[in-house]
Design a protein around this nucleic acid. Structure first.
Lengths: 131, 131
DNA sequence: TTCTGTGCAAATCTTTTGCATGGCA
DNA sequence: TGCCATGCAAAAGATTTGCACAGAA
């Protein structure tokens, strides 16, 4: 809770209950789409508008507090937490974070030096493989 | 040209000039968005409808002939050509293909065995870095 | 000839914008 | 108090659908 406030304090953005609620939701879920954020926040915060979610997601993205994770299914958002890998299920859209191993970083550094190593691997997750 | 026809012949989809034009465009550009495909095909094929592009892109995707490359900028499509890496510029949306090195494949295989190794790295391309 | 594909227009999402009001600093 | 943020409604964009006609097999 305190953490999320700090994120906003260190930015140009004002602290509002709506923004805290969005960040809280992303923290809880790890990754969530606009629609998911909206649906969940509406329960606690019935007056919130979808336009507010859009505006804030964009503002938070702009400010570097959150980032977008693209998938063929639906784009999601996560709180920025440095380099890591994403495994994205191409079927259900679920996203799983993973630590980059030294080997991965090295093999990619060879090819693309001085790049932020955000890596995305698309595949079918265990759950979807069973179906 | 012969190749593209064969792709359709081996699928459930009928061969039409529109579909061939879409595939030809993707082959030429490597990667293109719906809008780009539409704008370019319209020059040779003025009567084509945007809805036809959408329907066909979806049908071709469904048939596994093309695949979608997601980016924060704009989604693009490419002819399916087996495992490879994509370097995606998070600023201009340009996509550059690269061969996966054995090291890359190995380090990812360790983490996600038996997955198609389509890897996406987001960064800023040389062109955009200069600005 | 049959059945799928095309093109148009309308319908449906999705996302953005403008503006009056409310609320943080 | 001064401004930025919110919420509403409308606008703008993106994508899908329905249907009559055209064209591939």
């Amino acid at each position: 809770m305190k953490d999320l406030k700090t994120l906003l304090e260190n930015s140009e953005l004002k602290i509002t209950p709506q923004r805290l609620a969005i960040l809280k939701e992303l923290e809880k879920k790890g990754h969530a789409s606009i629609e998911e954020v909206y649906e969940n926040i509406k329960e606690i915060f019935p007056s919130i508008s979808l336009a507010t979610i859009y505006k804030n997601i964009n503002a938070l993205k702009e400010a570097g507090i959150i980032c977008e994770v693209c998938s063929p299914y639906k784009n999601k958002y996560e709180i920025n937490k440095g380099e890591h890998g994403h495994f994205i299920c191409a079927k259900c859209g679920d996203i799983e974070d993973f630590e980059l191993t030294d080997d991965m970083i090295k093999s990619i550094e060879d090819k693309y030096p001085n790049t932020k190593k955000d890596i995305y691997i698309y595949g079918i997750c265990k759950k979807c493989k069973q179906d």
